[in-house]
Design a protein around this nucleic acid. Structure first.
Lengths: 211, 211
DNA sequence: GTCCAATTGGACAAGAGTGTCCAACTTGAA
DNA sequence: TTCAAGTTGGACACTCTTGTCCAATTGGAC
């Protein structure tokens, strides 16, 4: 439809991977309806027929993409979560550092970004797929944060009644500015993420810091 | 494409209004690409040609819809904002009440909901349109909240350094739970909105209430 | 070298959508 | 009544997409 920008068939990977990767890009860029199999095929450097051989269907392609991205994204977040400060000496500094990494990860990890936008745009079409993602991704994140916050509260670092609510509010504060930028198509720099994290944590600790 | 549910040509209104209204529904339901002029026409109870006579183009139709909804939504929010508590006796109670009305409005006003979803899904396609909306809608909201918060701070009800940031965080806290529900396609009841408002305001005041 | 599976590219039918044209029809005002 | 503007519905050309079929080609395993 418009000028092709930088074809990158990436011959190292398997065809299947290339297909799923290209499909992720195209679905996120154009939405489910706007995405065409042809576009995916050329972007993946693969014939259209091959796509049908692998995934059978546009529907199948879409579902496989979401499933693959969900797994990938969840795995990365699991790793990230291990860095949550459990025995902080300076809770503000350490929580800020973690939060900054969190935002940076959100910004830089294509997978997360793609999935986020996909979920925003396409959740109406495949509610099942995205409720799974929500519970498995967003919800899982929240409950992990809640667990860590509980621990901090127990250790006397925080003053929290309802850890799940606190987790939700922590994430809301943290991603408030980020979301606005992201929706405008901008990707905040590392410094900007650090600033957002600092402001969010400051407010969070004013609310939930030890009295 | 599927079964038509409840046709309502609404013969009282002008054709133009009926077209814009139907278009809003269809665009929000199916996205820009998924929406068909035919669907709009039948939903509006109007011939396809009439649509072309009025707005010329699918693009034109879309832009007119967004412009109309933006105006409508902004006007309603202006009214709502006047209810912000400026001389509170019990700040928690009054801010909670306002916040609850805010969420209810978001939930019940079709226009706001449509616009929100439209912006989420279609901002990539027409960045200009939605930056306008963002500055005029979401940004305007934030700056109005910021002004009110400043006033409350000046009067000694709140302890705020950066009113714009506080406004953003207030809105983030307030809409955190609401967004999750909305994205799942659920519309929170009045009681649920009240609960969300209460929890958000409680945290907000823990952070920014008078020390 | 042979075989087999994956892949390719091109052709194809079917469907849906856009935007145009136009002749026929309403409808209100002069 | 007559006129003009708006409206209608149907036909049309055009494009794009999906999904299928198939014959030809490739490339690795044996």
């Amino acid at each position: 439809m418009d000028i092709e920008t930088a074809e990158k068939p990436d011959l190292a990977k398997s065809k299947r991977d290339r297909i799923l990767e290209a499909a992720a890009t195209v679905f996120c860029q154009d939405g489910y309806t706007g995405a065409s199999i042809d576009a995916v095929a050329t972007k993946a450097g693969v014939s259209r027929q091959t796509i049908y051989n692998h995934v059978g269907d546009k529907d199948g392609l879409f579902k496989e993409v979401v499933a693959a991205l969900t797994d990938k994204s969840a795995a990365k977040f699991l790793l990230l979560m291990e860095e949550f400060p459990d025995r902080p000496e300076n809770i503000e500094a350490e929580l800020t550092a973690f939060s900054s990494r969190f935002l940076n990860h959100l910004t830089q990890d294509k997978t997360s970004r793609w999935l986020l936008r996909l979920a925003e745009n396409e959740s109406g079409r495949y509610p099942e797929l995205f409720t799974v993602w929500r519970e498995y991704g967003s919800g899982r994140k929240r409950s992990m944060v809640a667990a860590h916050l509980s621990q901090l509260a127990l250790a006397g670092h925080l003053d929290i009644d309802d850890p799940t609510l606190a987790a939700r509010q922590y994430l809301a504060l943290l991603t408030a500015e980020w979301r606005a930028e992201f929706q405008l198509g901008r990707f905040p720099s590392e410094e900007e993420c650090a600033g957002m994290a600092e402001r969010a944590v400051k407010t969070f600790l004013r609310a939930f810091g030890r009295r």
